[in-house]
């Protein structure tokens, strides 16, 4: 059976690397059965670099794999990513952004419907808030631009993958720094887990390694709302 197993590749945003490595282990998939290659998470701020970055990896690696999953949302590429994936017979995760598939489409829509001025953070974005948001937007050099960037935002929504009080406090601090309200939602791995699980099952990759026992903690619901 293992000799017949397909070789699959995930090309992912660096912001999802840790989560995908965790899920791969958790689903009991051997590293060599599902290879992970990442692009810099900084592309989050420069979406025009995503499709060329993915294409470079596809050019090099597509022929070596039976199936390729691109762990990006549409991510502001203006359709360029989807056009590219058709060309290379690859597929991506559903939704516009990573925070959408972490939250799940319905919950994401509900949050945005309730408050259109929602600025989303995930575990990765909280951990790297200073590098990706503060430095990425130039707020370290020009803090006065904060109001220019965030004028229309009302709240920071932290879609937490893991329960981590230190990260939660850091996210609250980020909201305060941006002078926004704070909403905490423990969403787990959301559709990333669902999609990845479906992918490995379709490819028969499950059980190629020892399966993690913490499965049911992947989706969960906790919520706090703080006005800063």
């Amino acid at each position: 059976m293992s000799a017949q197993r397909h070789k699959c590749l995930i090309i992912a945003c660096g912001a999802l690397a840790k989560e995908i490595v965790y899920l791969r282990r958790h689903l009991g998939v051997a590293d060599e059965a599902l290879t992970l290659k990442c692009l810099p998470a900084e592309f989050h701020n420069t979406p025009q670099k995503i499709a060329p970055g993915v294409e470079a990896l596809l050019k090099e690696h597509r022929k070596h794999y039976d199936r390729v999953l691109v762990a990006y949302g549409e991510c502001g590429t203006g359709g360029a990513l989807d056009t590219l994936l058709k060309q290379y017979d690859a597929e991506r995760l559903p939704g516009a952004h990573c925070y959408e598939f972490f939250a799940g489409a319905a919950q994401f829509e509900q949050i945005v419907e309730a408050e259109i001025g929602s600025f989303f953070l995930t575990d990765y974005l909280v951990k790297n808030f200073d590098r990706l948001v503060i430095k990425g937007l130039g707020l370290d050099r020009y803090p006065e631009l904060t109001s220019v960037y965030f004028n229309n935002y009302k709240q920071v929504v932290y879609l937490a993958q893991n329960e981590d009080e230190a990260l939660k406090q850091k996210a609250l601090g980020a909201a305060r720094q941006l002078d926004l309200d704070f909403l905490y939602k423990r969403v787990g791995y959301g559709d990333l887990a669902t999609e990845l699980e479906a992918f490995v099952q379709e490819e028969g990759l499950c059980g190629s390694a020892h399966k993690d026992q913490q499965t049911r903690q992947l989706k969960t619901k906790d919520e706090d709302h703080v006005s800063c």
């Binding site: 937007l137 050099r141 020009y142 006065e144 631009l145 220019v148």
Partner: peptide, 9 residues
Amino acid sequence: VPEVLQCAG
């Protein structure tokens, strides 16, 4: 973008 916004300001 940050520099352009400074210029715009």
